[in-house]
């Protein structure tokens, strides 16, 4: 009996440990690899061990040759702007719409809610082409006539990266559920004291919505930080407005050029590529480790609410 339990424990721990090593391997590999030079890197292809701390892959990011080719800081800035915008606007819309759908009673409310929900039936791919054409033919933009002809519209321009997706039906749904879970008494007490709707939202509900809004903020931050498909479609032609994921993916293998190494061989500067990937990945991992509780709650919330 005792022996069987022991074998069971061995199985549990060995599976978990092997599993987590496999999961962590690509990330650990790139992190270690980013601190090696090319020779050390190929000295041990199983797992690159930096024999001495080699920081060139990172320090080269601060040189003018690098900046001339790779606008890394611009892309980080662009990505942060998009993150702020796509957290603030859909978040605010979700809060006030969630309020309207639960606390206000009016004709047409439930129909409007179903109308919003209906888009969840459609996979995201359906929106690519029409939205692209709408951006390209935006009246009066980018050399377009008022009929939307003749120019390139908002393609490769900032507005194309900021206009679509401002209403997030899922977040509205999430906030509506949260409003239902808050007793109405708090609002009524504030109303008796003469608070307006704006005051009620701001001073009564906002503090109570903090947990769900934290989840919304971090998930939206991760989603926009990693957003690749839409920037690829509408901004490929203009490196100035590239986002981090698109820019780094495009420039992952320019190491030899920016370091002034001889080119023409087939060998890529993988350590440099790993350093670039680390710049894009590490902030999110740090964020996750600091806010793990909210991530776990968020993932569960998405399912249990639904």
């Amino acid at each position: 009996m005792r022996k069987r339990v022991t074998w069971g424990r061995i199985f549990v721990y060995s599976t978990l440990i092997v599993g987590s090593i496999i999961m962590a391997f690509p990330l650990v590999y790139s992190l270690l690899g980013s601190f090696t030079d090319l020779k050390d890197f190929y000295a041990n292809p199983w797992l690159p061990i930096p024999r001495k701390l080699y920081l060139d892959n990172y320090s080269v990011m601060f040189t003018p040759t690098f900046s001339a080719k790779v606008q890394l800081w611009q892309w980080i800035f662009n990505t942060l702007i998009r993150c702020a915008w796509y957290i603030a606007v859909p978040g605010a819309i979700a809060v006030i719409a969630g309020y309207a759908f639960t606390r206000l009673k009016f004709w047409g409310r439930d129909f409007a809610f179903l109308y919003l929900l209906s888009s969840l039936m459609v996979p995201g791919i359906v929106f690519w082409i029409p939205t692209y054409v709408m951006m390209a033919r935006f009246p009066g933009a980018g050399g377009n006539t008022w009929m939307g002809q003749g120019g390139h519209g908002f393609v490769n321009q900032w507005p194309a990266l900021l206009i679509p997706g401002l209403v997030n039906v899922f977040y509205i749904f999430m906030l509506r559920q949260t409003f239902y879970s808050i007793p109405i008494d708090f609002e009524e007490a504030a109303r008796v004291d003469g608070a307006s709707t704006v005051q009620v939202l701001w001073t009564v509900y906002l503090p109570m919505l903090k947990p769900v809004l934290t989840v919304l903020v971090i998930f939206q931050f991760v989603a926009i930080w990693n957003d690749y498909q839409w920037p690829l479609i509408v901004s490929s032609g203009n490196p100035e407005i590239w986002t981090l994921a698109l820019g780094i993916q495009r420039m992952l293998f320019v190491g030899a050029q920016v370091k002034g190494l001889p080119q023409g061989g087939t060998v890529q500067d993988y350590p440099f590529a790993f350093a670039m990937a680390t710049v894009a990945t590490l902030p999110l991992i740090v964020l996750f480790l600091r806010l793990q509780r909210f991530f776990v709650e968020g993932v569960q919330g998405f399912a249990l609410r639904g």
Binding site: L16, G19, S20, M23, A24, P26, L27, S30, V222, W225, N226, Y228, L232, L244, A245, L246, I248, Q249, L252, Q268, Y270, A273, F274, M276, A277, A280, T281, L284, I285, F288, L289, Q292, F295, V296, V299
Partner: peptide
């Protein structure tokens, strides 16, 4: 918690960048 974190972290990475890194392999 450590195992759960290790299994979840890959989900946070950029699909595009890690695919490009995968190509290095």
């Amino acid at each position: 918690g450590v195992y759960r974190a290790l299994f979840y972290i890959p989900t946070l990475t950029s699909a595009a960048i890690m695919a490009q890194v995968f190509f290095a392999f």
